[in-house]
Each structure stands twice: as structure tokens, then as C-alpha cells.
Design a protein around this nucleic acid. Structure first.
Length: 919
RNA sequence: GGGCGGUUAGCUCAGUGGUUAGAGCGCCUCGUUCACACCGAGGAGGCCGGAGGUUCAAAUCCUCCAUCGCCCACCA
């Protein structure tokens, strides 16, 4: 077994320096293949498929958060012995990538049409080749233990085959169909968009009231619209059938004031009589509601706005003009002709392209759709995806998102899956253009060579590509080999956890569930863990345009990868947004440094020739190699460690990563560093002086043991520093048997209730409280730290135990002499300048003649007694309440009674002390 | 128009029925001697947004209100 090339000297740097550690350690892990799990039927597979970042993307804090959480889960389960697979990938991100490259072309003064489809694709591939693995390298800087040997790209042949197979299957089932329908169109991107890709934004606009004259009467009806230009495509006016104002007009005709076409007035219940004038101009070609009204009444459809955002020939004299210019022009013309009754300011929401922010134009177009059906049909795509969550086959964390998900599926419409882009999975449909004119449509996984109907070789493939989310929706099974029956697919599918941001619950998670069940018959994962969005210090969304982004790479350089990871996932709950600040990063870095220095201390101690630590390597999974714990302090820290171990494992099982980290932070900083190490120093010094005979067993093995365990517990959250220290530590321990070459392959510590020691905890707690009481008094009376105080400790039945801890109490509270008695000590009750502190059942007395004033001391104790009485009364009321005794959960009554007894005792003792003071 | 979330110490946030509500940062006082000033010791600071209700017991569950934010929806 060879250790990574860690420094072997005990002179570790005073401060942890991530830069000198991280790259070296990551390379070692990579070289040894630790990230690639073995397919082993004896082991339980644990799989997380990483949300694939955009291939041309740069790592941002959202990626870093995803990585921190997923890596922690995967490392934890790997250490627990599972065959843990974390599969990384990248997404071709059709519209996003095309947009980036188009902007590049624009800067060069050209465009994709000048290059042609193939030329453009070449440019994109070139771009991908140049920048495509940037984000992988950036992920590695974070310490991600994902299996790079299984890295997948959505356009790889495997996933591409999965896309085609899915399309072909669904087509033959009649679930994918082509239809002319009103869809969301982005004129800038020149493509159709799904409903999800439209972002509605509140905008200030105008509401125009326009007179439409009746055909056969000197009368008009006034309609209100925000988009006057769309009137050029009007084919009707609609009013509510029960609206008495217009009842006489239904069935008659008006003349469109521009274009001079006669159009009918219809009655339709979709009309809101309260809105505007209660009369709606109907433009079936450019409005979804109007399209539906038009369908009900057989109204004609006229497209007046084209795919480029300019008016079509159908717009008559406005043909070729830009749509918003036309809006102004039409309004002006109507006004000039006295047909514009009024214009009101109006705030309304307008759909924008998610990618380029252009105003989306609803228009009629021939597109491919996926028929998802209704959640009420148990065999439909929507129905099965709904049931998977409703029945609990898939568990969403936090739970509240289940309802959001179900609600979305309950209102879902067919999914427009075709895009008029050049970058993506081309739709596997070919049309026969042979001379026979057979009109055959070929839908196939493999490119067809000739028409199966007429054998013609002139085939034209459908021009469109698929929505990126279509291929993303297959990701959990397509990455594992589907549609082929691969070993990976059999062993690793379905996966365990899908971890991602709640912002892509519909886009991605829901689609994976729909298509995963459709293709494999099984939900693609058991748990969906949704994290929140990262915000800046002021709570604003991070975005490049806002200029408030923090670069994770920069943060890694300044604070270290471990600190960044810790800062991102500590102090947060699942699904909650989190603000990231430099302060949090500093805290995390300071914590890393604390761990580093505690380890430096322990390693230095172990390097001393004093005595061989009684610690072996035999059984890293259990506790057996630790010698009998003869010293109370040793039993105490091991008991605390036991509880931390149980708590961390439980929190991880519950996906409460922030809590797990908090528990480790508290244990390491408070219990281990502030108390145990400080206590251990007392024994170590006595040992060094070798004069003392009371030193007891050496704390070295326990220091080593607790540190070693703690490092393993912390490893999933701070992989680099724990590995670096662990290598240093274990090289100083006697080696027996096999030791894994890396902490990441060492077993994760499991709780063992036998190590819990109630008595040691309560006794050490009294020691700590006593020390604190003395320190507190010293600070309050402004007694210099270097001045030793005399203390009389009345220890009741605990005098033996306290005698054993006397050195520690003396050292940590700077007390000398310290006299410990079972009963009230001589000469302490005269009341002359003695500060008396109750650490129930201990009484701590500090004779300090001339420093304290007797009256003040009596008053302080009296206040303490009053507080005690008040609480005692409350507690008595509670414990004596028959309802409480009858209804409280088991154990609660006993707990409260225990507390009551303790309060009674405290009250009595305070009373006695006051009496002794002559109060 | 529906739905969800937040409102807890000066700031950022944990804490979903059971001791006298916690952490980090900030603040105040003290301490540079042997792991760490990226440190140690001590301290101040909160009627848990408001009002009702349920319960032996509420920051925690229910209702209403206020306020901030988010999501969904075909109001022209």
C-alpha cells in the first residue's frame, strides 16, 4: 500500500493551504480509479446521474452546489460499501448553444444562413471541441468523485440511438404526431417553443379601444386590444352569449376597418363581459384563446405576422413591416379615421423567449407533438408520471414540491417537441420524394437508404430537431445504455437519487419521469432531491447581466474547494434558496483550518517518542482496536463521538446535509478542540514532566482514534483536507492488516450505542460547568488571567470523581489551590468575601476577600434563587397536571419529573447557601 | 385568478409539538507561553410578523390578516 505523495514530516504548515493539496490528491484518486465502481452482485448499487451542464457552459455556483451535495451523498454511500456510481455528462443544449454561436457569427459579420446547415454545424462542433471539456476540468477542481470513464454527451451515438428509438416507438404508438396548430414562436430564434420556454413578464402597455362598424347599419361595436396590428388577421368579434348589451348583434357582421373584410359577431362563453367593452376581436392565427374560439365557431385563420416577426402579404399594405412598427402605424391610421375611441395605459404580462428575451409570437405552424394525455388516464404518459409520485414510488424532497409536480401534470398539454434549429437531434423522419409520388413517411432508428414503398432513393429528412429536453428526459436510462440491454442498465437502473434545482422540476425532472416510465416501465429514480437557488448577498438572483455572480473557481483559489463546498451546503434546508456571502466562505475556511490545526496537534503528539499509542489498524469498521477506556475524559469524548456519528448518519439518510455538517462542526470545534484537546494537554504535560503520578492512561490513542473517525465522518463534505490529514495520520499509526489506500475507500463510521456513556457525560459536564463558572466570575470581577484563584469545591458524593478531574479543573480555570471536600468546607461560610456558585450538585466557592461585597453577593444569589423558584413553580404545575400525566408521550413525564427534582435540589441548596451567608 | 415559500438575535440563517429557542458573522471586555489570531476566554442581544384557535404543552399544528418573494394560469 503506497500513500499518496503527502509530506511525511510532522512539521505541517501552520495554516492549511488548499492550493498545495487539492490538485495532487485529485490526481491520485483519478489515477487509482476510485471513482469507477465495480459491478458486484454482492453490493448494493447507489446511483446518481449528474444533471448534465451545457456543453459550452462555464461552472457557476449552481453547478458547484449540485456537485457538493451529490458528491457528499455518493462519497457517503461509497464509504458505506455500496457500488456507488455518479455518472457525469454534458448537454448539447440546442437553443442555448445555437444562440451562443450565432452571436459569435454576428460579431464576425455573418450568420448561419450564409454558412448553411452543415457549415453551421461544423462551427458549433468546433466550438464544442474547443470549450466542451472546460466544465469537466472545473468540476474536478471541486473534488467531484464522478466516474469520468462513463462521461456521456447527449449527442453521443448511445444517447442519440436512445432518442431515435424513443421517437420511433412513440410514433408507432400514435403518441408522437405532426399537426398544424398554434404554437409559441420566437421570431429572433426562428423556432417554435414549448409552453415552458415562454417566460411571462409584466409590462406597461396600452389598451386600444377600436370601433368596428356594422356591415348593415349605422352602428359600431367597440373592441379593446393590446395589439392593434393583429386586427389585420381578425376573422370575428366575440361577445358573451348572455351579454344583453350585445345580444342583438350576435350573428350579424362587422366590416374590419382596415382591409374592409366582413367578419361575423359570435357568442362565446370564454368572453369576460367585465373586461374592456365586453367585446373581443378574434384573431385565431395569433392568439391561443382566439384560436380556440375560432375552432368553436369555424372562423377562418389568417396569418398576418410571419416567422420573421414582420407582417405577411395577408396584411395588405402593411406587408413586410415589422410587427411593433405596424402596431403604431395601425393605431395612427385608426385614430386619423376617427375609429380609435380611446387608449388606456395598461399593465399586462407578455410572453418572452426564455433564451433571447424576444417577445414571443403565437402563430400557426406545422409541428411535432408528444401526446401526454391526462393524469386521469392511468395508461397515459401523464397518468403514469402522476401515479409514480402520487403513490410514493418516487419521493420528492422536500415534500412540498410533490404537489407542485402533481398540479402541473394535472394541467399539462401536449408537448411541442420540434424545433426549427440546426443544432440538436434531427427528427428521424424521412419523406419520400421519389418520382412515383407515393408520399411515404418513413420513421426509423437507422437512416433509410430507400423508400420501402416505392424503393425511391430520393428521401428528404425532416428539417427539424428535437427539443433539448426530449433527449434530457431519457438521460437516466440512455446514459446507462438503453435501448441496449447492457450490464450497466441491468445493474444500475433505476437510479437512487435525482438531485437538481427546483427551477427545472417541470423542464427536466417531470420529463425524465414521463419518458423513463414509458421506455423502461420503471420510474428512473426513487428520490428527487431539489435544492434551492443561489442568490447574492442581497438576495438577488445571480446573473451575468446583473454582474453579481461569484466565480467558483475564484472562490476555490481564495478559500479552497472544501471551504466552498462546506459553505454552499451548510446552514441551509433542502429546497430553500440560499445567499452566499464572503462571510460564509470565511467561516468555512476557518473551520478547515481548525481541523487542520487540531490534526497538526494530534500528529505532533503522536510523533513524540514518549510512548507508542495503543491503537491498531485491524478493524476500521468497528471500535474494537481501541483499548479499554479507563479515563473518564476518554469515555466522554468517545461517547460524544458516538452521538455525532449517529446524528450525522441519520441526517444524511434524511437528506439533511446541512444538519449533518452542523453536527460535525459542533463536535469538532466544541467537544473535541475546545474541551477534549485542552483536557488531554493536562495529562500530556503531566506525562512529559513525568513527575506526576496521577496522570493516568495516555490520551494519545484516543486523540488518534477520535481524529481518525472524525476525518472519515467529515470526508464526504471536505474531501481534500480530510484525505491529506488522514494520510499523514495513518502513516504514524502501527499498521496491522489491510488499510485502504485512501480515506475515501475507508468504511464510514457507524453508530454503536455501547459507546454511549451517560455517566461520563454528566460528570464531565459538571467539570465543564465548574470551569465555566470560575472563568465567568473571573471575567466579571476583572481578575487578571494570570492570577491564580483559590477554590473550594464542595462535591457531595462526587468528590472522588472531581478529585480525579482536579488537574483539569485547575488547569482550565487557572485555580490553585483547589480543595475538594464532600461536605461544607471549613471557613467558607463566614460570608466574608466569598463568591459562591452553584453547579448543582456541586458548590464552588471562591474566597476573595476585599474583592466582593457581601451584600451584592447575597443579592446575586437571591436573584438566582428567585429565577429558580419561578421555574420550579411552572414545572410543578406541569408535572402535577393530571392531563399532562395522562396524555404526554411516554418518557416525557419522567423527563420532566427528573427536571423537577433537579430544580428542587437546586432551590434547596441555594437556600442553604444564602443562609450560610447570613441572608 | 390559483398555489407555494419566507417573516426567529444588528446581519445571514438552522430549528415541525416537550428543559429557560440555537449557530455563524458582527458588536463589547479580556488574553499573543508550547495546534490554530483563519485563535482562545467571557459577555450583551430575541414576548420566534400580528390576531384568534386546537392541545396537558405551540416558533413548531389550524384559521384569518399583514408583508416580501417565487411558481402556475388562454384577462383580450
Amino acid at each position: 500500500m503506497t500513500a499518496p505523495t503527502a509530506p511525511t514530516s510532522a512539521d505541517l504548515p501552520r495554516a492549511y493551504d488548499p492550493a498545495t493539496v487539492e490538485g495532487r490528491i485529485y490526481q491520485t484518486w483519478l489515477n487509482r480509479g476510485y471513482f469507477t465502481p465495480e459491478i458486484d452482485s454482492e453490493k448494493q448499487p447507489y446511483v446518481i446521474i449528474m444533471p448534465p451542464p451545457n456543453v459550452t457552459g462555464e461552472l457557476h455556483l449552481g453547478h458547484a452546489l449540485t456537485a457538493a451535495i451529490e458528491d457528499a451523498l455518493v462519497r457517503w454511500r461509497r464509504m458505506r460499501g455500496d457500488a456507488a456510481l455518479w455518472l457525469p455528462g454534458k448537454d448539447h443544449a440546442g437553443i442555448a448553444t445555437q444562440w451562443v454561436v450565432e452571436r459569435l457569427l454576428a460579431a464576425e459579420g455573418t450568420n448561419r444562413h450564409a454558412l448553411g446547415r452543415e457549415g453551421f454545424q461544423e462551427r458549433v462542433w468546433e466550438w464544442v471541441g474547443r470549450y466542451g471539456n472546460t466544465i469537466d476540468q472545473q468540476h474536478q477542481r471541486l473534488g467531484t468523485s464522478c466516474d469520468w470513464s462513463r462521461l456521456r454527451f447527449t449527442l453521443d451515438s448511445g444517447p442519440a440511438k436512445a432518442v431515435r428509438a424513443t421517437f420511433v416507438n412513440l410514433y408507432h404508438k400514435g403518441l408522437i404526431y405532426r399537426h398544424e396548430r398554434i404554437i409559441n414562436w420566437c421570431p429572433r430564434c426562428a423556432t417554435a417553443l414549448s409552453d415552458l420556454e415562454v417566460e411571462y413578464q409584466e409590462q406597461d402597455g396600452k389598451l386600444y379601444y377600436i370601433h368596428y362598424p356594422l356591415a348593415a347599419a349605422d352602428e359600431h361595436i367597440t373592441v379593446a386590444t393590446t395589439r392593434p396590428e393583429s386586427m389585420l388577421g381578425d376573422t370575428g368579434v366575440a361577445v358573451h352569449p348572455d351579454d344583453s348589451r350585445y345580444a342583438h348583434l350576435v350573428g350579424r357582421q362587422v366590416i374590419l376597418p382596415i382591409g374592409e373584410r366582413p367578419i361575423p359577431i359570435v357568442g362565446d362563453a370564454a368572453i369576460e363581459p367585465e373586461f374592456g367593452t365586453g367585446a373581443l376581436k378574434v384573431t385565431p392565427g395569433h392568439d391561443v384563446t382566439d384560436f380556440e374560439i375560432g375552432e368553436r365557431h369555424g372562423l377562418e385563420i389568417i396569418n398576418v405576422i410571419g416567422f420573421d416577426g414582420n407582417m405577411t402579404d395577408a396584411a395588405g399594405k402593411y406587408a413586410g413591416q415589422e410587427r411593433f412598427a405596424t402596431r403604431r402605424a395601425v393605431a395612427a391610421e385608426l385614430d386619423a379615421r376617427g375609429l380609435l375611441e380611446k387608449v388606456e395605459d395598461y399593465r399586462h404580462s407578455v410572453g418572452h423567449c426564455q433564451r433571447c428575451d424576444s417577445v414571443v409570437e403565437p402563430l400557426i405552424s406545422l409541428q411535432w407533438f408528444l401526446k401526454v394525455g391526462s393524469h386521469r388516464e392511468p395508461d397515459s404518459i401523464a397518468g403514469r408520471a402522476h401515479a409514480a409520485v402520487a403513490q410514493g414510488d418516487i419521493n420528492i424532497v422536500p415534500e412540498r414540491f410533490s404537489r407542485v409536480y402533481l398540479n402541473w401534470l394535472e394541467n399539462i398539454r401536449d408537448w411541442c417537441i420540434s424545433r426549427q434549429l440546426w443544432w440538436g437531434h434531427r427528427i428521424p423522419v424521412w419523406y419520400c420524394e421519389g418520382s412515383t409520388g407515393c408520399g411515404e413517411v418513413i420513421v426509423a432508428v437507422e437512416d433509410p437508404a430507400r423508400c420501402p414503398a416505392c424503393s425511391a432513393e430520393r428521401l428528404r429528412q425532416d428539417e427539424d430537431v428535437l427539443d433539448t429536453w426530449f433527449s434530457s428526459g431519457l438521460w437516466p436510462h440512455s446514459t446507462l445504455g438503453w435501448p441496449d440491454a447492457t450490464e450497466d442498465l441491468a445493474y444500475f437502473y433505476p437510479t437512487a437519487v435525482m438531485e437538481t434545482g427546483y427551477d427545472i422540476l417541470f423542464f427536466w425532472v417531470a420529463r425524465m419521469i414521463m419518458l423513463g416510465i414509458e421506455n423502461t416501465g420503471q420510474p428512473p429514480f426513487r428520490t428527487v432531491y431539489l435544492h434551492g437557488l443561489i442568490r447574492d448577498a442581497k438576495g438577488a438572483k445571480m446573473s451575468k447581466t446583473r454582474g453579481n455572480t461569484l466565480d467558483p473557481l475564484d472562490l476555490i483559489e481564495r478559500y479552497g474547494a472544501d471551504a466552498l463546498r462546506f459553505a454552499l451546503s451548510t446552514g441551509t434546508a433542502p429546497g430553500n434558496d440560499l445567499r452566499i456571502t464572503e462571510g460564509k466562505l470565511e467561516s468555512a475556511r476557518n473551520f478547515a483550518n481548525k481541523v487542520w490545526n487540531a490534526a497538526r496537534f494530534v500528529i505532533t503528539i503522536l510523533a513524540e517518542p514518549a510512548q507508542e499509542p495503543q491503537i491498531g489498524q485491524g478493524d476500521l469498521a468497528g471500535w474494537s482496536y481501541l483499548p479499554n477506556l479507563e479515563h473518564r475524559e476518554d469515555r466522554w469524548i468517545v461517547s460524544r463521538l458516538e452521538q455525532a456519528t449517529a446524528g450525522v448518519n441519520q441526517s444524511l439518510a434524511d437528506f439533511e446535509l446541512g444538519e449533518a455538517q452542523q453536527k460535525l462542526y459542533d463536535f469538532i470545534w466544541n467537544d473535541f478542540c475546545d474541551w477534549y484537546i485542552e483536557m488531554a494537554k493536562v495529562r500530556l504535560r503531566a506525562d512529559a514532566n513525568s513527575a506526576a503520578t496521577t496522570a493516568g492512561p495516555s490520551p494519545r490513542p484516543v486523540l488518534a482514534h477520535v481524529l481518525e473517525r472524525t476525518l472519515r465522518l467529515l470526508h464526504p463534505f471536505m474531501p481534500f483536507i480530510t484525505e491529506e490529514i488522514w494520510q499523514n495520520l495513518v502513516s504514524r499509526l502501527p499498521k496491522e492488516g489491510d488499510l485502504p489506500g485512501s480515506i475515501m475507500m475507508a468504511p464510514y463510521p457507524q453508530a454503536d450505542a455501547a459507546r454511549h456513556d451517560r455517566r461520563a457525560e454528566s460528570e464531565i459536564s459538571l467539570v465543564m460547568q465548574t470551569v465555566r463558572a470560575v472563568r465567568n466570575t473571573r471575567a466579571q470581577l476583572r481578575i487578571p488571567a494570570n492570577r491564580q484563584l483559590e477554590v473550594l469545591l464542595e462535591a457531595d458524593g462526587l468528590s472522588g470523581a472531581m478529585e480525579e478531574e482536579a488537574d483539569v479543573i485547575r488547569a482550565l480555570s487557572r485555580v490553585a489551590p483547589l480543595r475538594i471536600t464532600a461536605g461544607v468546607p471549613e471557613g467558607s461560610t463566614t460570608g466574608r468575601g466569598v463568591v459562591t456558585l452553584l453547579v448543582n450538585p456541586l458548590v464552588v466557592r471562591l474566597p476573595m476577600e476585599g474583592v466582593v461585597d457581601l451584600a451584592a453577593e447575597r443579592q446575586r444569589l437571591q436573584e438566582e434563587l428567585d429565577d429558580c423558584r419561578r421555574e420550579l413553580e411552572r414545572k410543578e404545575k406541569l408535572v402535577n397536571n393530571p392531563n399532562f400525566r395522562a396524555k404526554a408521550r411516554p418518557g416525557v413525564v419522567e423527563m420532566e419529573e427528573e427536571r423537577l427534582r433537579s430544580l428542587q435540589e437546586q432551590q434547596q441548596r441555594l437556600g442553604e447557601i444564602l443562609e450560610q451567608l447570613g441572608g
